[in-house]
Simulated assay, not measured.
Amino acid sequence: MAERQYLGQGTNTSWEKFWYVLGCIYFGAAYFQKVPVKKALSEYGLVEMTGAEKFWYVVQCIFFGGGYFAKVTIKKALSEVRNAGGVPTV
């Protein structure tokens, strides 16, 4: 079983880092998948998006609609997270 991680204190394995970089090299696919997740987290006040992430989120929403629809799914999952002692309540 994997070791429990907490928001802001998690780590990636060497292989996870490798595959993320490889995914970013391949047309930025991994980066573009991350943007809607960061948008959802930012709406909960857990992270702050960079200017580039804000720009690409808008582009995803305008041209694909995918950015928004991906964010909706992620926010639904986040709304079901119970505070388990690692996530501060706001």
Rank of each mutant, 00 (worst) to 15 (best):
60 Q>E: 11
8 G>Y: 00
18 F>H: 07
44 Y>H: 14
81 V>T: 06
89 T>S: 08
46 L>V: 09
35 V>Q: 01
72 V>H: 01
56 W>K: 00
4 R>W: 09
73 T>H: 12
66 G>H: 06
25 I>H: 00
27 F>K: 10
26 Y>N: 15
47 V>W: 12
20 Y>L: 01
36 P>T: 08
59 V>P: 00
3 E>V: 14
2 A>M: 08
47 V>K: 05
66 G>E: 04
13 T>H: 03
33 Q>H: 04
57 Y>T: 02
6 Y>K: 13
46 L>E: 12
30 A>C: 00
21 V>F: 05
32 F>V: 04
56 W>H: 11
65 G>R: 00
60 Q>P: 07
6 Y>Q: 11
69 F>T: 15
84 A>L: 13
77 A>H: 11
59 V>A: 10
10 G>P: 00
77 A>I: 14
35 V>D: 00
5 Q>D: 05
80 E>I: 02
7 L>G: 09
22 L>F: 13
62 I>S: 03
6 Y>M: 08
50 T>M: 06
85 G>F: 01
33 Q>G: 07
55 F>D: 07
11 T>R: 11
52 A>M: 14
52 A>C: 02
45 G>C: 04
84 A>P: 00
17 K>V: 04
48 E>I: 08
76 K>P: 01
43 E>M: 07
71 K>N: 10
68 Y>D: 09
22 L>V: 13
29 A>M: 07
40 A>Y: 06
52 A>I: 14
66 G>D: 10
27 F>R: 10
84 A>K: 14
77 A>R: 13
18 F>M: 12
72 V>C: 03
26 Y>Q: 08
80 E>Y: 07
61 C>S: 06
27 F>E: 03
8 G>W: 00
2 A>Q: 14
34 K>M: 11
57 Y>C: 01
88 P>K: 05
74 I>D: 05
29 A>F: 04
42 S>N: 13
21 V>K: 05
44 Y>P: 03
52 A>T: 12
44 Y>R: 15
5 Q>E: 14
57 Y>E: 01
42 S>P: 11
53 E>A: 10
60 Q>W: 00
69 F>V: 15
18 F>G: 03
38 K>V: 05
2 A>L: 14
45 G>P: 02
41 L>S: 07
7 L>M: 13
64 F>T: 15
60 Q>R: 00
43 E>Y: 02
50 T>H: 03
22 L>C: 08
87 V>T: 12
12 N>Y: 14
17 K>T: 06
74 I>Y: 12
70 A>S: 13
33 Q>D: 01
86 G>M: 06
37 V>G: 09
67 G>T: 04
73 T>M: 08
42 S>W: 02
19 W>R: 11
14 S>R: 08
68 Y>E: 10
31 Y>H: 00
81 V>Y: 11
73 T>P: 01
85 G>D: 04
48 E>K: 15
61 C>P: 03
22 L>I: 05
60 Q>M: 13
40 A>M: 06
11 T>N: 10
82 R>W: 04
24 C>Q: 00
35 V>H: 03
4 R>C: 02
39 K>P: 04
25 I>W: 06
13 T>K: 02
9 Q>S: 13
22 L>T: 10
73 T>A: 15
